[in-house]
């Protein structure tokens, strides 16, 4: 039971589309897992269900030992606040408040006093020092994504989900963000689950989940980028 998040026979359908099809999975603590797969294969849906951002049509999701399926919205939110950090592809920073206020917003919502030392360490690490009083719109995309990462980590969650965190970034920023994620896992024992389309990014993970048609079709341990690329091309071929 060292899994932080467990999915048991989770199905999520939108009308006739089955985005997640009877998926059972466990994410072990302290690992860096990449999720890959063709577009529309259900990666985002998997992450959102695992993070309790979405409610599965059937099946159970356990986060930090708590079964979230069946909880009401408020209770689910509370579990999520405590255990989960989420990095959205489109940053999701509120434009009307400063970067610093954005970083502590989830804590504020949870009614938890921010751990200043931890926060400043995170800010230092991502190199956002000196930009805290600005508005999000005044930061570059990479800087905004790094702020979103700090926000996800501020509450010391058990697990951080990241949905294509580097999707909108240039190569350098992307590499920086990835390096950061890896550091978190290696140095702080953080659990990170990340969706990506980039085999090079997936190569920095301990494991890579490959999805197709709402199912997990493969689980590779530290695959080489070339090998991954081949597998994915083949998958795409199958689908088309």
């Amino acid at each position: 039971m060292s899994d932080v998040v467990t999915l048991e026979r989770v199905t999520r359908s939108y009308g006739s589309v089955t985005a997640l099809d009877d998926v059972s999975l466990g994410f072990p603590r302290g690992r860096f897992v990449a999720v890959m797969g063709p577009s529309g294969s259900g990666k985002s849906t998997l992450l959102q269900c695992a993070a309790a951002l979405d409610t599965p049509t059937s099946g159970t999701v356990r986060i930090g030992g708590v079964t979230v399926s069946g909880l009401n919205e408020t209770r689910r939110t509370e579990v999520r606040r405590k255990h989960v950090g989420f990095v959205f592809q489109s940053y999701n920073l509120l434009p009307s408040i400063t970067v610093e206020e954005n970083l502590t917003l989830p804590l504020r919502l949870a009614g938890v006093r921010p751990d200043r030392a931890w926060l400043s360490e995170l800010v230092e690490r991502v190199g956002l020092g000196g930009r805290l009083r600005r508005r999000p719109a005044e930061l570059s995309g990479g800087q905004q994504q790094r702020a979103a990462l700090v926000r996800a980590l501020a509450a010391r969650p058990d697990v951080v989900f990241a949905d294509e965190p580097t999707g909108a970034l240039d190569l350098r920023s992307a590499a920086e963000v990835l390096g950061l994620l890896r550091e978190l896992v290696d140095e702080l024992g953080q659990t990170v689950i990340m969706v990506t389309h980039d085999p090079a990014a997936a190569a920095r993970a301990h494991e890579t989940l490959v999805m197709a048609d709402g199912r997990v079709v493969d689980l590779l341990s530290a695959p080489a980028p070339e090998e991954l690329a081949v597998r994915l091309t083949r998958l795409n071929g199958v689908l088309t």
């Binding site: 951002l53 919205e73 408020t74 939110t77 509370e78 999520r80 606040r81 989420f86 959205f88 999701n92 509120l94 917003l105 989830p106 919502l109 949870a110 926000r151």
Partner: peptide, 15 residues
């Protein structure tokens, strides 16, 4: 959209 974003960041519907 803005309200949903807040929800995703950890705001309960009540909040």
């Amino acid at each position: 959209e803005e309200l949903l974003a807040l929800r995703r960041l950890g705001a309960t519907p009540g909040q």
